[in-house]
Design a protein around this nucleic acid. Structure first.
Lengths: 235, 235
DNA sequence: ACTTTTATTGAATGGCCATTCAATAAGTGA
DNA sequence: TCACTTATTGAATGGCCATTCAATAAAAGT
């Protein structure tokens, strides 16, 4: 992507080179942010390059200089949001207690985290996602993002099942939880004032408690392994 | 909308008039169907009036004659799908057994019914829904459709709670179930081959069984009132 | 200071698309 | 058959928008 000559790479980061490249990255991010703004405010169909460059307070030709085409700008915007999403849940997952209940809670709360679950970002995400069916490049990015998160979720559902002799099918439960998460996002994206992030989080945690009764207290707090009893299991 | 003179209305349905008006309605539905096709295949942004008229095998100017504007065509398409959706679940709800478990099952299965839950229709629905945030007319239709269904769902969650002394909050449970349904739709809309309607239905029913353990057998079949026991309740 | 590379601008271009409209066909009632 | 209404066509219009590009500014290297 960065086509600055190969010499620079082997010569390391000279001061000047470094400054130029940093500036270049800043511009790109600035433009991506303006794109997210426009997608969230105006929707996909009404987002124009003029909107984006105006939003970034730059001139008309700027996007084609940094991203070659509008199409490419949108793909890189999707990539940007996908990366940010993944970095967020992986960090929270890594930081969670060494315990299945905590890990499940971490995955679910990560999805509804302040950092990524803003009306602005969620709206922009769905604006692009809705076009994914007819755009292979989008579809691939959306699909891969989902697959990584879901794989981790399934893994922990399996683990929970072993720990507490639940009789559910881990794949089905994963599908249900993940569908709920996406549905909650969708509702936030639609943006009636009635639905807020905190409410969605409460809903999601309550559902976790219902599905994994041996792993969570009624209020949605994870139960540490020591305090669990297998009698609570259902089905 | 139909601006055919007022005389005809008071004169009743003369043979000729009737035939003309029926033809007019047929055209409109034909064009709406072509619109749904295009939305599902190409997405919102790439759906043009030329696509629609070609899809209906009619000429370029035809949409503006029957719908005045592209904007109006899309609104009426959304309305059409919204009406169809509502008619479907209301019919199934009315036909269900006089029993809370059956009613809940009817609501959930209606959403994933063959008749309305086709990849084509679900994709078109989300294509329009994604633009709803920036289009008040869309937002209103989507919101109203949701509100009617959810009100009915909440009503039955409350009823179930009373019948079996569940301790959950009916509003929260409604939000969770409904979010899951929308998430399952979204997944069908994205259209990877891996997700099918039947799988989604299984997921949804299994979740019903988990949330309302006194009302459903482990396999998702509704339990008749006579066979329920309150001991099964959780939390 | 001077050359070269890189970044930015904004006007010009060309294509696509919704909408209009004059012409025409088809159907209706006398 | 003849007026008259309604439906349909397809070419013409005008606007919007992505993309290009020549000119210019800024920065880096020498």
């Amino acid at each position: 992507m960065a086509k600055t000559s190969a010499q620079k790479d082997e010569a390391g980061e000279a001061a000047g080179t470094g400054r130029r490249r940093e500036s270049k990255e800043k511009r790109r991010e600035q433009l991506i942010n303006a794109t997210i703004d426009s997608l969230a405010r105006r929707g996909y169909a009404s987002t124009t390059l003029a909107n984006v460059s105006d939003g970034a307070r730059l001139s008309r030709g700027i996007v084609n200089f940094h991203f070659d085409s509008k199409d490419n700008l949108l793909i890189e915007t999707l990539q940007f949001m996908s990366d940010e999403y993944q970095a967020n849940w992986k960090a929270r997952y890594a930081a969670s207690d060494d315990d299945t209940a905590s890990r499940l809670a971490a995955l679910v709360t990560a999805d509804l985290d302040r950092a990524i679950c803003t009306p602005r970002k969620v709206s922009a995400w769905f604006a692009l996602m809705a076009e994914a069916k007819s755009r292979p490049a989008y579809q691939k990015l959306v699909w891969e993002r989902d697959a990584r998160y879901r794989a981790c979720l399934t893994e922990n559902c399996r683990m929970a099942k072993e720990e507490a002799d639940y009789t559910f099918d881990p794949e089905t439960v994963t599908a249900a939880i993940y569908a709920m998460q996406e549905g909650l996002w969708l509702r936030l994206a639609l943006g009636g004032r009635e639905y807020r992030r905190a409410t969605a989080l409460k809903t999601a945690l309550e559902m976790l408690g219902t599905v994994f009764p041996c792993h969570f207290a009624p209020d949605g707090m994870p139960l540490l392994e020591a305090h669990r009893s297998k009698k609570g299991r259902r089905k």
